[in-house]
Amino acid sequence: MNNQEIISRKGEGLAANQRFRETINAILRQVALYTTVGLMCLFAFFPFLVLMINTFREDQDLYRPQNFPFFFNDPPTLFHITQLFKETNYVVFLRNSVFVGLVVVLITLAIAIPAAYSLARLTGKWGERAGIAIFMVYLVPPTLLFLPLFRMVVALHLNDTIWSLIVVYPTISIPFSTWLLMGFFKSIPKDLEEAAMVDGYSRAAAFLKVVMPLSLSGIIAVVVFTFTLTLHEFIYALTFISSSAQRTLSVGVPTELIRGDVFFWQGLSAATIIVAIPVGILYNLVLDRLISGFTMGAVKG
């Protein structure tokens, strides 16, 4: 073995050493990344996990303080779920909530889309100011409004029906949605509609065929926002409605599952998780539709 060979072997050894270190580093980076992601996921999922476990626990398991709180110390039971569905109006609340949610979403879309489009395109500089004014309306808290609105609901003979909520919820959802959609419509180049108009379409058809598909992510955001709002809104739902059969989830569940100072924890957990999981999955599905990349390439090179 001459000197040169030794040097080249040494070089190879160094190179191998470096490769080895790079591999280790890459692995460590991956481990760090996935550990962080895993912890974040656990953190976000933790409340759901606790609710899910609590749903199936026996009373004596839940109430004994020395028991480990995050696991079944006694065998799980379906008793409280059966109770929720059989002995309370839960199914009615669920139906009412979904119905109110869907109708309010439709009303909101029907009014906010044309409003936002006309404010974004047709009124020049006043559009911007009107948009801000509309957004201000959204900032007035329901705690200030529920009494006057209750008088109006009574005047319309809608008190104690879910229709009172269907009439009132759009006062919150429309201003916010209009403001949100204005941003989306403004981000779509005017050229696209004009091209459609020169290509032979009316303004309305150009809107439907070009602007709407491109604002889909904004429209989905509005649907999600409005539906969530109707699901968790409490003050109006509490004050406008007194009979159990007309109640929605947000008020019905606490009124039926908290009796005096007795909390039916398993029932409450079940009532919440049954709504939260499908809604969570649904939102995850649609929110992935980020179409912002969609408009790229439409304009300029």
Binding site: E194, V198, A298
Partner: peptide, 20 residues
């Protein structure tokens, strides 16, 4: 008349291709 009734075609500076 509105643009659709004029039977003209236009190429925009931005091309205005429909991105979707």
């Amino acid at each position: 008349l509105p643009p659709r009734a004029r039977d003209v075609a236009m190429v925009f500076q931005s091309y205005a291709l429909y991105p979707h």
